[in-house]
């Protein structure tokens, strides 16, 4: 076997998973080929580091949710009726809030269309405006409902719905700020920050973001907030940043970020 063919087998060599013939070929080649030996040493080092990363146990909630899913599945009885019931159950499980909302929107569209067809006297512009308002309201409600879900991915979904809203509704802004300041999951908080950044032209939003920086304790969120605030080029932020630098327990990366931002704001 040629030297160039042996390199991809080094991993299996290290794991002792090779057949005898390839194993002997590598052993012989290693004796006369320092480059192959060097490659093997490199792989050993990376392997060693990768092996240090431990595996994690999921939270007990995963097992509980699984058992709940199994219980729901076993409630059914055999026969045609159960198949229909199973189909309905699956339909209920898989349907999301968003899908439900779209179904309601379609229903509303149908209703308004029929209603206005019959009436015929209402101005078309008014009809469209009314319909848009209904849809907007529905999106808002759906977002606020999803934000209260226990699942982090559902809460991120809620934050993403805010992108579909045409106007910055005070309730939505308030909910996004509440999420940014209180959500237990860092990724959900980051998603809320990103959504709020779109409204940073508004002074109230900027003030809210500055206020949020004082309460955040996770370096990831602090750095993201500092980035957003620095982009606004508001000189009054210098004092905020300097105050923050005084905190003894402040993370080193955050300190570095603040110093970079202060240079930009000079």
């Amino acid at each position: 076997m040629e030297k160039k063919d042996l390199k991809p087998y080094l991993m299996e060599f290290l794991r002792e998973e090779l057949d005898e013939e390839t194993k002997i070929a590598i052993q012989s080649q290693l004796k006369v080929d320092p480059a192959l030996q060097e490659e093997l040493d490199e792989l050993k080092e990376v392997f060693g580091e990768l092996n240090k990363i431990p595996s994690h146990k999921p939270d007990i909630a995963l097992k509980e949710n699984f058992q709940k899913m199994m219980e729901e599945n076993t409630i059914q009885s055999p026969g045609l009726f159960s198949n229909i019931q199973h189909w309905i159950n699956n339909f209920q499980i898989t349907i999301s809030f968003k899908q439900m909302a779209y179904a309601v929107v379609l229903l509303l569209v149908g209703f308004f269309f029929g209603y206005n067809q019959n009436k015929g006297t209402v101005n078309a512009g008014e009809r469209n405006q009314q319909l848009s308002m209904e849809i907007e309201e529905l999106r808002k409600n759906m977002m606020l409902t999803l934000l209260e879900q226990p699942s982090a991915s559902e809460r991120i979904k809620a934050v993403n719905i805010s992108y579909d809203l045409e106007e910055a509704d005070p309730k939505v802004i308030e909910a996004l700020f509440f999420t940014l300041n209180n959500d237990k999951n860092s990724n959900v908080r980051l998603a809320a920050l990103e959504a709020l950044t779109r409204y940073s032209f508004n002074k109230k939003i900027r003030n809210g973001l500055t206020e949020s920086l004082r309460h955040q304790d996770k370096p990831l969120i602090q750095i993201a907030l500092i980035d957003v605030l620095t982009e606004m080029h508001d000189k009054s932020l210098k004092k905020e940043f300097k105050d923050l630098l005084q905190q003894d327990e402040l993370d080193a990366d955050v300190k570095e970020k603040i110093n970079e931002s202060l240079e930009i704001l000079m």
């Binding site: 994690h56 939270d59 995963l62 699942s151």
Partner: peptide
């Protein structure tokens, strides 16, 4: 459940989402 959970965790780095 543990290997699959860790499969997601290595990519996403978020425990809650990996559980979902």
């Amino acid at each position: 459940n543990i290997p699959i959970y860790n499969f997601f965790l290595k990519f996403i780095g978020d425990r809650e989402i990996s559980q979902d």
